[in-house]
């Protein structure tokens, strides 16, 4: 067979190259550039090698932020994934209830992130907020702007409120794709409700759950806007997750070198976790 050779095709790829270069490669390379140098006024740069990376990796501040980040993401996943599946299982399968539930579930996802933060800030304020006032009336000493535990509680509650819907919608889609015959076959076998969940629903939801966990991991690991508006990272540094800490360093202190190094380390952690997770899931996939 004769292949026609036509180099004109490259013309059509050039716009994409330029676009990707400007929105991804150039900014990223700038960060790489900063991370190996010390920056002075008047665009004076001096080569620093891996100094900033070593500094960041040894810094207690970074360790603390990273620890907080993993704890937060872990708690978020541990709550949202089971809760999302549980809600999806109880949602109606037909009738007008379906649209109602789907709209209700989509609602939190449609709200801009800073609005969510502001909403929860007002909602949870101890004196005037509905939640804050209610909790104090009930006898709890609740003040998320002053107490670390309360700040975490409110941040987690906010994230659960905002994002569990995503897990619900994905799980629901997975559940709806199971043919009714599976449930009948299980009924004939005399399988218990738990067995139906464990051996039919969960395996059938595996793919969407993989997506859900990946999305929720990345999103919560990179969370910035909502806690920034809600707590501003406080009290103290209690809810200063990686991205909040990073912004403080880069724009608050204008330490561009260390901030650039931290950005890259941050980026590689996200990439590494996603890669490991994806490969684990796909390895299981080839076995099944």
């Amino acid at each position: 067979m004769n292949k026609t050779i036509n180099q004109k095709a490259w013309f059509f790829v050039i716009p994409v190259f330029i676009l990707v270069a400007f929105n991804a490669v150039v900014p990223l390379m700038t960060v790489v550039n900063y991370s190996f140098q010390e920056t002075f006024a008047n665009n004076v740069f001096t080569w620093e090698g891996t100094r900033w990376f070593k500094q960041i990796l040894r810094s207690e501040r970074f360790h603390a932020a990273l620890g907080r980040q993993f704890l937060f993401t872990g708690v978020i996943l541990a709550i949202q994934i089971p809760l999302g599946i549980a809600i999806a299982l109880t949602m109606p399968k037909k009738g007008i209830g379906v649209s109602f539930c789907l709209i209700l579930m989509s609602m939190p996802l449609l709200i801009p992130w800073n609005v969510v933060g502001a909403m929860w800030n007002i909602f949870a304020l101890p004196e005037i907020g509905f939640l804050g006032h209610l909790l104090n009336d009930m006898g709890f000493n609740y003040n998320f702007t002053q107490q670390i535990g309360d700040a975490w509680f409110t941040t987690i509650l906010m994230d659960v409120w905002h994002w569990t819907s995503l897990v619900v919608l994905l799980s629901y889609a997975g559940l709806r794709s199971i043919q009714p015959a599976y449930y009948q076959a299980a009924e004939i076998d005399g399988a218990s409700r738990w067995a139906v969940f464990r051996y039919i629903e969960l395996p059938k939801m595996k793919k969407v759950l993989t997506i859900a966990i990946l999305l929720r991991f990345m999103d919560s690991f990179m969370i910035y806007t909502e806690p920034f508006v809600l707590t501003g990272g406080g009290p103290g540094n209690a809810t200063a997750f990686l991205s909040i800490d990073l912004v403080k360093m880069a724009l608050g202190q204008f330490d561009l070198g260390p901030a650039a190094a931290m950005s890259l380390i941050y980026f590689f952690i996200v990439l590494l976790v996603c890669w490991v997770f994806y490969n684990l899931m796909m390895r299981n996939e080839s076995q099944t």
Partner: peptide, 27 residues
């Protein structure tokens, strides 16, 4: 149906997805 000793085969291929063929037949 569980008390009726009935088996059914469907148009769709209905097996437990993460069981082996042996476990499926034995289920």
């Amino acid at each position: 149906v569980q008390k009726r000793n009935v088996s059914m085969v469907y148009q769709e291929f209905i097996n437990y997805p993460n069981f082996t063929v042996f476990d499926n037949i034995a289920s």
